[in-house]
Design a binder for these strands. Structure first.
Lengths: 145, 145
DNA sequence: ACCTAATAGTTGATTTTGTAACTAACAAGG
DNA sequence: CCTTGTTAGTTACAAAATCAACTATTAGGT
């Protein structure tokens, strides 16, 4: 009854995932933060618009599971920096269609390049098969299937 | 020159890791937050002391890569709730040895049980081999090898 | 011993996030 | 057309994280 359940915090998935996420974001964070003065939500919004074209705030929120207040603030900042424009949707004037400006697209392409290189470096720690499996498992854990 | 680099945000490891970490922490968070009124750093400190016994704030910070101000505040709150005691180290009176009280150990054991069950449920989405590989890869990404 | 640098931990000010309440616009039933 | 309810997005306030400056103590030269 010595209650010696073998439990190691270092194997606990929520902990492990957090540590890995934090560590593996550090260098990329440096780029979008220090070099572009952006916040996490901001580059995410930028990437969504860069990848999928015009979207509303709500659509971005659904795809990336980001709360609407965060998005609202990120969009405000990106608009203020002239990285995107907002146009009221004629059919539903509550929402607005967001689109990157030329400047926004330029920043997106630059950041995307950084992201690609960075991701490749992370994945290089594993075999191709392992990396693919990892992404699959993470997608499942994230509920993004 | 159509700049059609195939890049999918949904495959980008830092993004994927963050989403998985967030999603997979939600339910456990509910327990330590709603049921025990704890913050993330607080249960982590509790677990470190529960698992490794007496430690200083600095040692916890090193093991879990948590910043000292966060630890300082977490320790203060845990001490205030009588989950741990602090004793000045006789050899170096700048630091203090932290140890769980009986109450602290009880909470630790209870939370550990929840964590174990929860972790098992997460891992059950994969084969045993896959889960082991996942933990290995996460440890490597987290720089915890 | 004495001066400077380093270390453990705390505190306060600033930023960022989270939560709830709000405005404006649409929708559907009577 | 009016209620009542819902939805897109914003704003205000509270909670928490981050960063810099601070205290107390130790360590290492000289």
């Amino acid at each position: 009854m010595t209650e010696e359940d073998s439990f190691d915090l270092r194997d606990f998935l929520p902990f492990l995932l957090n540590q890995a996420a934090e560590e593996s974001s550090l260098e990329f964070q440096q780029v979008y933060k220090d070099r572009f003065g952006m916040l996490r939500t901001e580059w995410r919004v930028l990437f969504h618009l860069g990848m999928y074209g015009e979207l509303t705030a709500k659509e971005i929120g659904e795809r990336a599971k980001i709360h609407k207040t965060k998005i609202s603030r990120a969009v405000a900042k990106l608009a203020q920096r002239r990285y995107l424009t907002r146009t009221r949707d004629a059919n539903d004037r509550r929402s607005e269609r967001l689109a990157l400006t030329t400047a926004g697209r330029a920043v997106y392409r630059e950041l995307r390049g950084v992201a690609q290189t960075y991701d490749a470096r992370l994945a290089a720690q594993f075999t191709t098969g392992e990396a693919a499996l990892l992404r699959m498992m993470l997608r499942r854990l994230a509920g993004m299937e």
